[in-house]
Amino acid sequence: MEPSGAVVRFDEVGFSYPAPGGGHGPEILRGMSLALDDGSFTWLVGPSGAGKTSALRLMHAALRPTRGEVAVLGVTIGTAARRALPVLRRKIGVVHQDLRLLPHLSTFDNVALPLRLARRSEARVAQEVTEMLTWIGLEHRASARPEELSGGEQQRAAIARAVVSRPALLLADEPTGNVDAAQARRLLALFAEMNRLGTTIVIATHSEDLVGRFPAPMMRLERGRILGHGA
């Protein structure tokens, strides 16, 4: 269990992906320690290959650390029973760098996925998804499949899917990479509003420009290590 009030805690975390020939490959994350308080907003910055995505995946319980301890929303990822992880994941919203919209579903149904997994009524699903699509300006694209959306529209749909269930923790990996400046500002406003309502937010980006638009605590990663914290 989580020892303090931190929503996310890393203690000397190391992670390496399995090597093709067996065993572990080189360490992607090395001795990483951090604590993110409830309701905080954190930028995770660093160059490509610094380990930002792996750190987010550990926070999302999509990976387990190869050493050290990761605790998220009170669940210790390394030792938690496998059956305990789906409940945890439903409390976390994720925007993947590659978006991962389901190609055979409409925009509406993609955004509705977390609500349907949570077994919300269809009436409530319809209301909440419609509100979310309106907020991100995709209400007129509700029936379109991802292949019919532009890159920016796909990105907005992926963000809508991540936030529609009002998660306790939102993890976003380069969430504004494909949208124009106006849309990026609008999405940042959405994240800020969610943060104001209590959601803990971690956004990984290599864009210093984006960080400059929303001043918040920043964590700089390089070669799998945290080089510094700052605002």
Partner: peptide, 8 residues
Amino acid sequence: VLHQLGAT
């Protein structure tokens, strides 16, 4: 994706 969204 469903697995990551919390489907059991």
